[in-house]
Every structure is written in C-alpha cells, then in structure tokens.
Design a protein around this nucleic acid. Structure first.
Lengths: 350, 350
DNA sequence: TAGGCAATTTATAACGTTATAACCCGAGCA
DNA sequence: TGCTCGGGTTATAACGTTATAAATTGCCTA
C-alpha cells in the first residue's frame, strides 16, 4: 500500500482543468486523478492498488498524479464498499487505567500500528454493564476489524463469543478453554515463583501475597507459582483475603497494617501491581517498621516508578509496552489471514 | 437520537418475508425495515430521524420495527453521505502517557462521550515528526469531526491552523494568541503561587522549582505564579535549568542531588509533576536528608500515588479526569454549533 | 482475412445512507 | 367542476470506492 500517510503535499491552487468547480480546491478523489490522467476511475483505483493487470507505466503515472494532488482514499467509502473498517478496537476496563497500565500498552499498540492503515479506537467498558457488551456491539455492527482486550478469565465469555463468531482478536492473558486462541501473556507463574524464591533466599520465613481478583486467569497463575515456591521451601505463607490488586490503595494499606501489627506477622510481601506495592510500603512505614530489615517486598514493575521510590525494593519487570506491540502485531497477522493459532500466541518471559 | 446503543436484540431467525435471502439473517439495514413495514427506504430514514414531516403514527411504527430487528445505522454509509465522521480525535504526545496523565483524561473523555454517537480515536503523535502533522492530516482528510489535544504553546501552530480552518477543537492549556479559542486549563499560576506560599509559611528560605519545558504556555504560568510569590515574600529562589518536568527521572534526581550537596542548598521544592517529585524525594533520601525536616516539597498530584508515598508530602490536586470530561463536553457543544468562545473556555480552580 | 488470444482499459453496479425534488391524494375554495 | 393547497410519502441521485463483467486494442495464428 504505497499511500497511507500523506506527505505534506501542497494543494495546487488550480489543479483541475477549466471545469467550473465552485470551491477553489476540493478534496481530491479518484475522479480528480481520473480527469487529470485521462483514465477511467476504475483504472485509477486499480493502479493505486498496484494491480499487475494495469500496465506498469500507467501505474506509475497514476501514482505520481495521486501524490501530486495529495490524494488519500476516503475511508468511509472504502469501508462501505469493502466492509473492512480499518479500525482496531481496544476494549478498556476502567481498572486498567490506573497508573499507566493501559497507557503503556496503548503506546506499544500505536507504535506497531503506525504505518498500517489501522486506527486504534478506545472502546471503554463501563463497570455497570456486562463485560461482553462492548465486544458484542463491535462484532454485531462491524465497528472494527479486530479486537484487543485484557484481564482474561479462565472461561472468558468474550473469547468464546469471538471464537464462535470467527472474529479476529488478541487478548492479554490466557484462558483455560479447550479451543486454543490468540493471546499475549506474561509468565505470571514465573513471576511469583521467582519472587517467593528471592524472599526466601534473603531470609523471609512467612510470605504474604496479594493476588489479582480470583476471576482472572492470572490470579491462578500467580497463586500457583507462589504455592509451588513456598511448598518447595517449606516456609509459612499467607494469601491475602478480602483485598486484591484492584483494591483501593487505602484498603490495602489498612489490611496490610493490621497484619503487620499482629504477632506472627509476615516478613515477605509479593505484589503483582504497583499500587498495592506502594500501599504495603506505606503501611510498613506507618508502623515504624523498615523495608529491607523488618520486612521485604518484591513487586511487579511496569513503569519507572520504583526507580525513584525509597527505600528501594526488589522488582521484577513486566514490559507492558512490549505486550501492546506484540498484541497489535499478532492481531495484524491474524487479520491478514494467518490462522494457525500456534503462530498467534506469545508468553513474555520474566 | 433514539437509537445508538443496541440493546441485545434477538435476531429474529426468519424476519424477512418469503424472499429467498441466502444467508439466514443478514445485518439489518433501512431496506430491511422498509420491506418489513411496506414503506419506502426514504420514509424509514426520516422516520428514524423523527422528522415531523412523517406522520407520528408512522414514525412510531418504524421505530418499533427498527428496535425489533436490532437495527443500527451503518456508520460508514452515514459518514460517506453526510460527511460527518462521528469521530473525535485525541492527539496524544508520547510524553503525556507517563504515569497516567493521558489516561485519566481519556477516562474523563470517554465518560462524557458515552451515549453520544461519537467515538474517541487515539491519534498518536510521534516525536520524530512535527507536532502539527497529525492535526493537518485529520483536518485535510476529514478523519474526525473534532480534535482534542494538550501541551498547548503560547503561539501554538495547531491552534492557529484549526482556527483558520474553522475546525472544532478544544485544547488543554491556553495560548497567547489574539484570537480567543476553546480550551480547558488548570490554574497553574495559582498552583505555583500557593505552593510557594506554603513552603515559605513553613519556613523555607530558598525555593527551587522544576518547570515544564519552556515552549509550553503553562511553563510561563507556573513561572509567573512562582516569581510573584517569591518576590512578595522576598525569599531566595532558583529555577531549575537543564531539567524540566519532562526530563527522565534519573536525570532529575542527579541534578537535584547535586544542588542538595551544595553549600547554599534549596530547602523548598516545587514540582508540577509526579515523576519529578519522586525524583526529588529519592535524591533527598539518598543524601541522608529528610523531607519535612531538611527540605520540604510541594507537588502537583494527578493520581492517588502520593497518598501512599512516605514520608508524606504536601500536594495540590489537579483533576485530569475532570479536565477530560470538560474538554469533551465543550467540544460537543462546539460541534453542535455553539460558537461564542466565551462559552467554550474553562479554567479549573486549584 | 477471419478468428482468437493476451494485454489493457472501461462501463456498470453496488455498498447503505440522506438531500432534493417530485409525487399522490383528499380537502377546501372559487 | 376545476383549482390550489398541504400533509404525507416516494423516486432519484449522490457521497467515493471497488468487484464483476464487458469492451477495446494489437498481434499472432490458422
């Protein structure tokens, strides 16, 4: 596709011939180029598509003319005619917007989509409606050619629906469905496993982990990695109940503070999110305890935040921007017709 | 506009009459409803638009039929015919994506746009191309009906261009242009003024401020508020040179550390961003100094971050989500035809 | 020289919508 | 009776693109 980003072409002030066009210069269409080159609209269309049926010389002539008048195809017309929308919908959950989670991903996605004809459209999912509603809406009304979303669940309704509809999508996180599907995930099992090992290696004997809400698949991955490590090492452990990575920071702080004030308090914390990690730190601080001496903490890092937080804690990095790039990349592949699911899955290593 | 969000209408399995339609049920169009009601396509179109020229009884009948088959207008066709895109473009600078700046705004915008026919499309602006390119592209090719952007400059090219083109937009931040234009801004003058006063009131005698890059209007607002306060109080001050709110956190930390190690070190810091505030805190900590005793810090808060950061610092809140809501709201007004610029401007109080 | 074939180009129709102008029909009036 | 009037409805065309089928041309073969 030779023409998708317009160079800053000058609009020639009197491009058309002596036709009495009212406006000084209208938006150039195929017709404009057809008149300019003396060809038929159809020919111009094909020439711009580099159709080998059109003589090479003609193609070049047409493409030159198009560039000269700064022609860009009308997306609405293309969409109406072909049924393709050139839109990719990112269905965003409000929770994902905290502290740049969604943002890093968006940056990655837009980077990949650059230079393609695709636009990224944010489709918010409001918490007072079922999770699947926006997805249904997009598919039913052909609002997009592909869908991206995250916070995947083991038996995700969206995945089931999209698979059945044969609609291209890539989600962040896996399911436990029998049918394989495209996804990008992070090795959250490994994350908690390594985090626990680190804490134990530095002397912790009672680990405390804050997990994502149970309905998400990565809750189970994280739990599993954690449990494997603590069982291997035979140390005490505790899984936070009543709070999750989605809980409000104040709630987490209060909960953690209560545990820290207790007799058999944990001495090692694992947080899969920056917000809750900050809450653990503030709770610790407020009780006069010290991170690194009284308790240790390993957090998942998804931004540069913890480089500046003091005292410094141990972190394990998840590159969400890379995840976004990958998700968009796989979706492009899928939309281009690649169907072997094996080529459409990726797990980012810890 | 009665129909924009489809309720989850069942697709009646054999809605059409005995016409031999190949697929079991196709996407319903005006034609579908026309056949169903025995009216002409034109009539259906008008009836759905609640055109008073159509008999009230007919309108109701048509709307009922539309709801029954789950009709939603084809956006591409509407767009092609009317020239309206039903799209609002948010032109995002990569810098704005740090720590949720853009994200909070997006949340506000999508909240306002909910229930309207408008979609929010993220148009990234890549730093290797002129700032105005995506804006030109959107206007020239009618990619959207309105534009939102931020990081406004005193003599902003985008504003000038959009004003001249008569294209609806709302920006975050003001210009110093003679022609008034729609904007939403935060009272950054007041922010730095109050921040400085607070620091001085708590005993600071040498203030240090980190400003946004000089090319942005709010650099000047912040500088002015700061200068006014320090002059009124006659205290020492220092304006960071070589670093800005956009500098990388490590750079800021090193710079601040160097100043703190100096003999006449500042004892009060003002940061208009969360990243730089964190950097000031880490620099302070690393030198064995203590926030609240040796130095004080007032930061702008745009998320819940500082509620968890210890030691606690003073912050002044800017509600970016509210800014996003307002920007979208004003843009809707503007696109609906409101032109008195006075009604399209807002400054959020500190 | 007619027929056929390949290489190009073109005409036509269609996607789903809406603006414009035309149509129909009964009521009211001269 | 013929006329206008106006409420209600409809036919037609157009937005810009592309898929399909058709047409044109030159050239080669029978």
């Amino acid at each position: 596709m030779p023409l998708d980003d317009a160079e800053d072409a000058h609009q020639p002030n009197a491009a058309g011939s002596s036709t009495s066009n009212p406006g000084p210069n209208r938006k150039p269409t195929l017709k404009t180029i057809a008149e300019l080159t003396g060809l038929a609209v159809t020919t111009v269309s094909r020439a711009l598509g580099d159709d080998p049926l059109i003589a090479r010389e003609t193609r070049q002539r047409v493409q030159a003319a198009a560039a000269k008048v700064g022609y860009l195809p009308d997306r609405a017309a293309q969409r109406l005619r072909t049924g393709r929308t050139n839109v990719i919908s990112l269905v965003l959950d409000p929770h994902e917007e905290i502290l740049g989670y969604g943002t890093s991903m968006i940056r990655g996605m837009t980077a990949t989509l650059r230079g393609t004809p695709y636009h990224l459209v944010i489709t918010p999912h409001f918490s007072d409606t079922p999770q699947i509603d926006p997805v249904r809406h997009i598919v039913r009304n052909r609002m997009a050619d592909g869908i991206l979303f995250s916070r995947t669940e083991p038996s995700d309704e969206r995945v089931k629906f999209l698979l059945e509809a044969g609609f291209p999508f890539v989600c962040h996180g896996r399911t436990e469905l029998a049918t394989p599907h495209p996804y990008v995930d992070y090795d959250n099992y490994r994350f908690t496993y390594e985090a626990a090992k680190k804490l134990i290696a530095s002397g912790c004997r009672r680990l405390f982990i804050i997990l994502p809400p149970e309905r998400f698949t990565f809750h189970h991955h994280m739990r599993h990695g954690f449990m494997t490590a603590v069982r291997e090492e035979g140390v005490g452990f505790e899984i936070a109940e009543g709070i999750t990575l989605d809980s409000k920071a104040d709630t987490v702080r209060n909960h953690v503070a209560a545990r820290l004030a207790d007799g058999d308090r944990p001495d090692g914390f694992i947080c899969g999110g920056e917000v809750s990690a900050m809450a653990v730190m503030s709770a610790t601080h407020d009780l006069g305890l010290e991170i690194g001496r009284d308790v240790r903490l390993v957090a998942k890092q998804t931004s540069g935040l913890f480089d500046q937080v003091r005292p410094q804690i141990e972190t394990i990095y998840e590159d969400l921007s890379e995840a976004g790039r990958l998700m968009a990349g796989l979706l492009l592949k899928r939309m281009a017709g690649v169907t072997p699911v094996g080529e459409l899955q990726a797990v980012l290593e810890v």
